[in-house]
Design a binder for these strands. Structure first.
Lengths: 211, 211, 211, 211
DNA sequence: GATGAATGAGTGTTCATTCAT
DNA sequence: CATGAATGAACACTCATTCAT
């Protein structure tokens, strides 16, 4: 992260922020470097001064998008009940994704796995989730039948799965509602045995947000 | 479906089957029509005799891949306990995916939602899952606190999420084990209230299959 | 002509006649042999049985189009006044062209001069015109200040020029009216000196048919 | 026009001028972009840096060819007798065409009428002719039995017809002589009634320039 | 730092023609 | 006579990247 951070000169960040809106309509692969440069008003030469490669731009984009998530969502996770924090986390994630357009959501999921920098993308989110779940297990709010890593992964995978489904369907339904409901169901599986016995489940039968 | 089926001449299917192994190494978008033709030993002209477009080839590929899944997995789902059938379904799906290489798995998830043929891809799987879950609810094996559509979607999304995680990580862990474990956890959320009280969860603490 | 005629088997003519309507919308070059075959319901193999080449088809097309002109226009040219016959000839030509669509008109003018058969296309028309003009000169109806060949060429070139202008403008005006008027003017130049002195020109001032 | 003019960078014009000789041998449609680039020694990438499309090149070519005609022919049209100016105009046109090769002449006449830029090509020429004829009518040198537009069109169509005949026959005769003679005859039709009476026509019988 | 002209391999696709059956 | 699968050179055009100024 530090290495990446050093690279982020002021101008570079300005360019990144100018590029982000372009990704709302066309996919990253569809848009050419020339188009990007013309749209944001810099020369191709300048572009290649700040980014070694088009892929380098992608990394930069993911970096600032992530920063955004961390800054806006993490501070909210202060609930005593860690299950609530998990719900808030998922809700914040969904809001973050849906507020930035489908293409950007696709951008995030279109990971080129060759790239180490990209593979590391989710680290802050993973760490935060792991903290919450570990804490929840300590507080007996979350089952200890499975270890925290396992539950973290499942939680993350489910969030990503929901997000992808939404972008596959071109954002045709309300992502946050859908996320809330799905996570509510998933979290039934996170309850410890003694709580599960008393749980009443969803108060009423609900239809999916998705049409 | 019939129209698609009519198109599937013997030679066309031969070509499709010859193309599949090529997708194990490079992504569909990375591989050019010329490369495909050279690899499988037909002329470009012949290729365009059987496929109107490169995208037409993609549709054809997804078609036979789906057929494969349906033929090999669906007949196994004969358990009286529908929760077991769900586990078998997910297991069969994971086996199907992992036995065919990462690239092919990526192929499946790289859906271009513009394409109706592709959008319909999951239909047989969705219908089958819906049947199982509906039947499970009728048999009081699955919670009725959420409707069958909602649960089906969550199940499908989780399966897809797991598969994608695996291909994102270039198949670096055993997909089937991972799938089995994750689905086992998810299915805790599917239990009806009266069953949950008695459930004992996982018999012993397990580490994730993923390293 | 005889050599060409021998080639014209019954089936060949049937095919030619089936192809003609296809040329009304798309140009000859735009339409592929495969499309032609599909449209008229023969196999590619059959096509190449009757035509050695796509260009061979073109020659055949021009041949029957010409026949049409000869059959429908020449019999009308029986006026005593040869200037009237010239007008009738031009009028018939214009009707012939405009009744068969712009693309067919373009087809006629898109002559590939490499091709001898095509170069000879206009011969019957030229011969007929030459007859009329020669006769007109003999009858003192047409000036003898220029020889018949010269006048014939000018007449033909003007007719073709008018036709081309019309097809260049995608048939946006009435060709026959335009032809009549232009030829009327041209024929003023064909009058012998003693007639010109008495001529009154056009009875009234006219606007061009073309908008 | 201004927009087009702005596009004409120095390098672009250099390329256009380098392309012109290539069109003397093969038709524009026959020559590929790759061939053009190789012949004039630029990369395909460079070509597409200056021309958005192969058709864009065509427009550019017509543009500079027209400029040439205007610059070299229009200044000569200063005669008091407008009929003489018409002859000079036609002569200049013929010289212009024949000095630039048949293929270039074909290029000019192979107008794709979809293209607005191309449709406007003749405008300067049309306007100039109209001026001459209108002026000639005012001076009683040209008949007023037909309006200036009609006569202009006929004149232009005849010139184009002659040019096309010449290029159809692969430039096998002297275009300028042919043009002069044909226009001389045509202009007999342009004479006002009172002049026609006195006209003596061609001083001696001439054979067509064309063999 | 900034520019943008130059590069050229690569793309998906077309199509007249051949020929074994 | 008839078929249609097979061919493969050719096409217009794209685009990430380099580098001299």
């Amino acid at each position: 992260m530090t290495k990446v951070k050093q690279k982020q000169s002021k101008r570079r960040i300005e360019i990144l922020e100018a590029v982000i809106p372009l990704i709302s309509q066309q996919s990253f692969e569809e848009i050419s470097v020339a188009e990007i440069c013309q749209s944001i008003g810099i020369s191709i030469g300048s572009f290649y001064h700040y980014f070694t490669t088009k892929n380098d731009l992608l990394i930069g984009l993911l970096w600032i998008i992530d920063e955004d998530l961390v800054e806006n969502t993490f501070p909210l996770l202060t609930n005593k009940n860690e299950l609530e924090n998990l719900k808030l986390f998922a809700h914040g994630w969904a809001e973050h994704v849906s507020s930035h357009g489908i293409e950007r959501s696709k951008l995030i999921s279109s990971i080129n796995p060759d790239n180490e920098a990209l593979a590391e993308r989710d680290r802050p989110a993973i760490r935060k989730l792991l903290e919450i779940i570990t804490s929840g297990q300590a507080k007996k709010q979350i089952t200890t039948e499975y270890d925290a890593d396992t539950l973290t992964d499942l939680f993350l995978i489910t969030m990503r799965g929901i997000t992808q489904d939404w972008s596959r369907r071109d954002g045709s339904y309300a992502l946050t509602e859908r996320m809330d409901q799905s996570i509510e169901i998933l979290l039934r599986a996170f309850l410890p045995a003694h709580v599960r016995a008393k749980a009443k489940g969803a108060p009423e039968r609900k239809k999916t947000a998705k049409q």
